[in-house]
Design a protein around this nucleic acid. Structure first.
Length: 628
DNA sequence: TTAGGGTTAG
């Protein structure tokens, strides 16, 4: 505010209400919420009474800052001065502010009390429900508006309604709105165009999306980021890269949102070379030092196996937000570096950032991956006692995971019993996973029954129970579980591992012989098997689900996708290069043992990312301590 | 006074 001394405003000999309001609106326009709100207080101190225009200028800023306390006091001021009576603009600004502050009860109260509403009022109410994740209600208000027909249809209302359809994955309704926007002539509106594109990319087929994208007459950076992030969130990573390349050939410049959309595509593939190229592009376009882009880069590097690069990006940031800290803490957790994760958690607070509920999920999962049972329990309780954050289902899942992996199955069961809300299938799933690790058949069966009662079986849980039986040699029961799984339509997705060599992704499925170098790969694997058997490797056939004879089982294990990817990497990379493999499922226990020994015979460092974490294999050891 | 794209966990 010091610079203000030099402003025109300060040199004005007399300041009327118009001048004060212009300043409030000016700060608001530049997103300077604190200054805008502060100025309203300052004008009152200077003896100037805010009028309707002041209120209408400052309320959107209050909403943006989610400053409910100030918003309520402004509301009180409006009531005292009768501004809220029959003034559509004041009423709309108030209800919009309440909506943005997630205070829907008040938003609705203002909305219902308004005797006259215009299209902006309806739009603000629909938007309020969308902000608060109440999509069904948002669409109900939209319908009500259409039935009443007293206001014209604002494109903002349609945009919010389309967003509700997207969140609800309601493609049919979205398509109806698409037709409706054509009828109303709203399609050329870029906001509507991009909302439709975003909807198709997030819930439609790739064909639908490309068709619509190609039909768009005008495309801006929002169009590109909408389609790219929509694709990435849906797992259509290749298609996202294709659109990104099209963008580079177009005259549209990438912006922060485009970069933040495409960077996770590299993380999905664990494609470090792609990630580095994208990082380079962000630097060229002057976007690499943006907080959100840096956050996405930290995430990308940690998920591509390079926690060191992630840390470099983190250390170089001049400004960090809560996402930066959560991302780096989660990164250390994933790499099994729990102590460092706790150290950073403490550092973030000295840096003035208050941990949120997500921070604790990152921290607890870090404790789980590092076997830090005492620390995990401590932070779970401290979260409520010292930080006032009530544990959600996700926090319980982490806690059960920590206790379960650590072998404290009874304690985990007790925590579930004492939960203040009903545990969902994921909580039971965490306990079932622990039963698999610690081979506790009795509890495993009980937990499976609980999961069945909930009626939310998933493929993963069937596989876990089947594994528990197989590990105990009870193949009849294991087979029964698999039959039930098949009859109920759950299909186990095939294990797939991939590796990036010189910027190309090579993917392998178990037993796969489609790779051009398949013969060499299988030969290499046979050679490795001979070598590691000399070191005492015995195939752990309990990880084979089928009741085959031992020789068959050994073959099924030998050709698991992660082993194929590693054999190919040893053939393709010079011996000083670490090998990074990514798998779409958890690493199998037998592969885990085999890979430890492979690091000894091949003198390689092997890093495997599975769905849960990173395994750093080096000199016959894995940093997960054999719990994952 | 309203509206389109983005990063963290599970």
């Amino acid at each position: 505010m010091k610079e203000r001394k030099f402003m025109m405003f300060d040199v004005m000999p007399t300041k009327d209400i118009v001048a004060w309001n212009a300043m409030v609106a000016g700060f608001a326009l530049h997103g300077m919420s604190e200054d805008s709100i502060g100025f309203v207080l300052e004008m009152q101190n200077a003896g100037q009474r805010p009028n309707r225009s002041t209120v209408v200028s400052v309320l959107p800023v209050v909403g943006q800052a989610k400053a409910l306390r100030q918003g309520r006091s402004i509301h009180g001021y409006c009531v005292r001065r009768y501004f809220d009576e029959d003034d559509i603009m004041v009423g709309t600004a108030l209800l919009d502010m309440y909506g943005k502050c997630a205070c829907l009860v008040y938003a609705c109260r203002v909305f219902d009390s308004m005797s006259a509403k215009n299209e902006v009022t309806w739009s603000a109410m629909i938007g309020g429900y969308v902000v608060c994740d109440r999509m069904v209600d948002a669409l109900e208000v939209f319908d009500q508006m259409m039935i009443e027909g007293s206001s014209k249809l604002a494109s903002s209302s349609l945009a919010s309604a389309l967003r509700a359809c997207t969140k609800l994955a309601d493609l049919n309704r979205g398509k109806i709105m698409h037709n409706y926007s054509i009828k109303c002539g709203l399609l050329p509106d870029i906001t509507i165009g991009n909302s439709l594109l975003s909807m198709y990319a997030k819930i439609g087929s790739v064909d639908d999306t490309v068709k619509y994208f190609d039909e768009m007459v005008f495309k801006d950076s929002v169009s590109y980021s909408a389609i790219i992030s929509g694709y990435v969130q849906n797992g259509n990573v290749e298609e996202a890269f294709a659109i990104f390349r099209r963008m580079q050939l177009s005259d549209v410049e990438p912006d922060v949102a485009v970069m933040v959309g495409i960077i996770p595509a590299c993380s999905h593939l664990a494609a470090l070379q792609h990630g580095k190229c994208t990082h380079g592009l962000a630097i060229i376009h002057g976007l690499a030092f943006d907080v959100s882009v840096s956050n996405a880069l930290i995430d990308m590097y940690t998920k591509c196996g390079r926690i060191d690069h992630g840390r470099e990006v983190f250390d170089r940031m001049t400004k960090r937000d809560i996402v930066s800290w959560n991302t780096i803490i989660a990164g250390y957790g994933m790499h099994g570096l729990g102590k460092e994760a706790i150290f950073l958690f403490l550092n973030m607070q000295t840096d003035g950032i208050i941990p949120d509920d997500i921070t604790f999920i990152c921290l607890l999962s870090a404790c789980s991956h590092s076997g830090l049972v005492t620390e995990g329990k401590h932070w779970f309780h401290a979260m409520t006692l010292n930080y006032g954050i009530k544990p959600r289902m996700e926090h319980y899942i982490c806690l059960i995971d920590i206790l379960g992996r650590g072998g404290f199955l009874d304690e985990a069961r007790e925590y579930i019993r004492r939960m203040p809300f009903e545990p969902d299938v994921r909580v039971w799933g965490a306990l079932l996973g622990a039963c698999r690790i610690h081979k506790n058949i009795e509890l495993g069966e009980q937990v499976s029954q609980m999961i069945e009662k909930l009626g939310h079986e998933s493929t993963g849980n069937f596989v876990l129970l089947s594994n528990i039986y197989s590990a105990a040699g009870r193949f009849t029961e294991a087979a029964k579980v698999r039959i039930v799984q098949r009859d109920r339509g759950f299909v186990k997705s095939p294990g797939c591992s991939w590796i990036e060599i010189k910027g190309n992704i090579h993917a392998f499925i178990g037993g796969d012989r489609s790779h051009p170098q398949s013969r060499n790969i299988y030969q290499k694997l046979e050679d490795l098997l001979v070598e590691i058997k000399k070191l005492g490797y015995q195939p752990d056939t309990s990880f084979v689900l089928q009741d085959m004879d031992d020789e068959e089982k050994e073959h099924a294990l030998l050709y698991h996708s992660e082993k194929l990817a590693i054999a190919f990497a040893i053939l393709s990379l010079s011996s000083d290069k670490p090998i990074f493999v990514t798998k779409n499922l958890r690493v199998c226990g037998d592969c885990h043992t085999a890979i430890k020994l492979i690091t000894l015979v091949s003198k390689r460092i092997i890093v495997v990312r599975d769905t849960s974490r990173f395994h750093h294999f080096h000199e016959g050891m894995c940093n997960c301590g054999d719990f994952w």
